[in-house]
Structure formats: structure tokens, C-alpha cells
């Protein structure tokens, strides 16, 4: 009986230790980039200059339409995969659904080259002072926010979008469903460190063979 009691004590101690270790491992390894307290709340206001026009565009001007707002950068490899998805989405759903691309931590010349290379035709402009990246709680690129016609963030997608995911998110957006945050953080590239602009700017020659 005494031995049984001793074994039980050991078992309880080991289980408690395992629970503590598991809690710490979970806390240290869980992916923070997916969560966003902004989901379900009003989207922070913004106004950006457009690359393709001598004018600016603000979120206020898009009021009344669902908005797909994508943060990207010319140095981001995942953004290349996503560029075609967003452009075809814009051609399919626009202008009823507004598409906006915001270049972060980027320079004008490589950003323009990227736009031309991937034939992007929706509204595109830079986050000049990094304020939009902070206002939207960005960790990296690409990250995409889905904003309802009345200006609320209904969902956030981390990493490159696929055609199917974009279709699903837009259907949620049109239905007014708060979809939460999701995606694939492994496809997201964190905003760069160091002084100056990112090291990995778009190369002079297209690695995919295009012009």
C-alpha cells in the first residue's frame, strides 16, 4: 500500500512537470504572426500616393465596397507567387471589390519594376513612413486584410494567397462573416532588419526569364 502511494506520488509529480514543460514549449513556439486583435474592429484609416497616378487614395474613398488590402514588397519572394493570384482576383471581382496593394520597406524603382513585371493593374502605392505597417500590426509580407464595406477588418491572411483562399475570403467578405486570422506564416517573409533598405531588392534581371 505504501509502495502504491509512493508510485502515485511520482506519477502525479511527473504529470505536473510534463504539464509545466508543455505550457512553456507551447508559449515559446506558438505562432504569433497569425493572431490580430484588429480583426472585428474598424480598419485604421490611411491615405497613400499611387504609383500609377499623380493622386492619392484613401480608405475613406473606398467606403461602401469590400476591400482586399495586401501588403507586399518587391524583395519578397512569396509576393511573386501571390502577384498573379491578386491580379486575376482583381480582374474577376473588381471594381465591385476594391483591391489595394501597399508596398512596405521598399524603394520606388524596384516596386515599379515589380508592378510592371507582374502586370499588376489595381491600386498600388507605398507605405512611405512605415506608419501603415504599424497601424495594421504587420510582422512581414505578404499579409492581406479583408475590410468590409463599412470599414471593419473581417479577416487577415498571412503568407501568399491562393486562388481558392482568395475566393473563400471574398465570399466571407461579401457575406459579412468575421473570418478571423489564418494562412501560412512559413510563406511570410519578415520585414528586414539592419540599417538602410532591404538587402534583397528585385534583381536587375528577372530570375523567371520574363522582361
Amino acid at each position: 500500500m505504501a509502495r502504491f502511494s509512493r508510485d502515485m506520488k511520482r506519477l502525479v509529480f511527473l504529470l505536473a512537470l510534463a504539464a509545466v514543460v508543455a505550457t512553456f514549449v507551447y508559449a515559446l513556439t506558438r505562432e504569433q504572426t497569425l493572431a490580430s486583435p484588429l480583426v472585428g474592429h474598424p480598419a485604421p484609416a490611411w491615405s497613400i500616393p499611387l504609383y500609377a497616378a499623380d493622386s492619392t487614395l484613401s480608405l475613406q474613398e473606398l467606403r461602401g465596397r469590400p476591400v482586399v488590402m495586401n501588403f507586399w514588397a518587391s524583395w519578397c519572394l512569396s509576393c511573386r507567387d501571390e502577384a498573379r493570384v491578386l491580379e486575376s482576383g482583381w480582374r474577376r471581382y473588381g471594381p465591385g471589390v476594391a483591391f489595394v496593394g501597399v508596398a512596405v520597406a521598399d524603394e520606388a524603382a524596384p516596386a515599379r519594376a515589380f508592378i510592371e513585371r507582374y502586370g499588376k493593374t489595381y491600386h498600388l502605392g507605398p507605405d512611405l513612413d512605415g506608419s501603415m505597417a504599424l497601424d495594421y500590426g504587420l510582422f512581414g509580407v505578404p499579409e492581406t486584410f479583408f475590410i468590409s464595406p463599412d470599414g471593419r477588418i473581417l479577416s487577415k491572411h498571412v503568407g501568399p494567397l491562393t486562388d481558392a483562399e482568395l475566393e473563400r475570403r471574398i465570399a466571407e467578405l461579401k457575406a459579412g462573416v468575421v473570418g478571423g486570422a489564418g494562412g501560412d506564416p512559413s510563406g511570410m517573409e519578415r520585414l528586414p532588419g539592419g540599417v538602410g533598405l532591404p538587402d534583397r531588392l528585385v534583381p536587375a534581371t528577372d530570375p523567371e526569364g520574363g522582361s
Partner: peptide, 8 residues
Amino acid sequence: QRGADDAA
């Protein structure tokens, strides 16, 4: 194409 550059 001046918009974004001027703003920069």
C-alpha cells in the same frame, strides 16, 4: 508616375 516619388 510622379505621385509616389513626390510623396517619397
